[in-house]
């Protein structure tokens, strides 16, 4: 375990110093700060508009950071030959992959945490500090963290065998498909009029592509009138779903990387 933690902490240290990620984070933090000003133009209630916009900023930024951070993780180590000095020591390849992944997720978690702090600050500045409201707000970034943990695992899996550029598009594509088309596949599966072949295909896609839409819990946060039935159970199930996918994707990544010539 100490080997994995060493690799993870070194990865975290390097990730939080990567300029491109810091620039993305700074732009996001700036956007979160100026978001209340932009909401004046919105026809909907100001509070709802601010929340909707800031949640969107956090989610998009987190997705971008998750992909940019992870697609280079293994290719960079190979290109810079750091991997050779690590793998020639008593380090198994699976420990290397898991360590890199945990480091990336830790960096991602740290960045989401900063954005959440700014979100709380901006919201409190706009409508006063309300602990109940803060508790509601943090549910969004909490679920985004798990969503991005899956996305990072997707990108990590691809990074074991494709180039960073291809990985960027593949991971982005899977994120979009898992976010936008998840309900479409679901309706195919549930519609009685759909033929069996389409149902089977939709079902297969539904299992292969993670359902990122599960983690989009912003609607009840934006509109306090809406509620998630059995909220705790829903969150617990979603976290379990994320862990299951992460483990599955890392196993595939390890199996590929284990035979890969670096």
């Amino acid at each position: 375990m100490s080997v994995i933690l060493s690799i993870a902490s070194t990865t975290l240290g390097e990730a939080i110093r990567r300029r491109v990620l810091l620039v993305i984070l700074l732009i996001a933090l700036g956007s979160l700060i100026i978001a209340p000003g932009l909401s004046v133009l919105q026809p909907r209630g100001q509070q709802a508009a601010i929340t909707s916009l800031t949640m969107g900023i956090i989610q998009m930024t987190s997705a971008l950071i998750a992909i940019v951070l992870t697609v280079y993780m293994i290719p960079n180590e190979i290109e810079r030959r750091t991997i050779y000095t690590i793998l020639c020591k008593p380090v198994q390849r699976w420990q290397f992959v898991v360590g890199k992944y945990l480091g990336a997720v830790a960096a991602l978690g740290m960045m989401i945490f900063f954005m959440t702090l700014v979100l709380i600050f901006v919201t409190s500045l706009n409508s006063g500090f309300d602990i109940a409201r803060v508790q509601e707000l943090v549910k969004g970034p909490f679920m985004y963290f798990w969503q991005m943990a899956i996305l990072s695992a997707v990108a990590m899996m691809f990074s074991t065998f494709v180039t960073p550029l291809v990985n960027f598009f593949l991971s982005s594509g899977i994120f979009i498909a898992g976010t936008v088309f998840s309900s479409v596949f679901q309706s195919f599966m549930e519609n009685r009029g759909t033929n069996e072949l389409t149902k089977t295909l939709a079902s297969a896609v539904q299992y292969i592509i993670p359902n990122f839409a599960l983690y989009n819990v912003q609607n009840p946060i934006i509109n306090p009138g809406q509620e998630i039935v059995n909220e705790f159970g829903y969150y617990l199930q979603s976290v379990g779903y994320a862990l299951l996918y992460v483990v599955g994707l890392l196993v595939v990544a390890i199996l590929i990387f284990d035979r890969r010539e670096v």
Partner: peptide, 24 residues
């Protein structure tokens, strides 16, 4: 193994690099 033109994590100090490799 000492590879040709190796790269070490630039944000780390010399002693931190050794601590990292020692931890392995």
């Amino acid at each position: 193994y000492l590879p040709e033109k190796p790269y070490y994590y630039e944000h780390m100090t010399g002693i931190e690099i050794l601590r990292f490799y020692a931890s392995l």
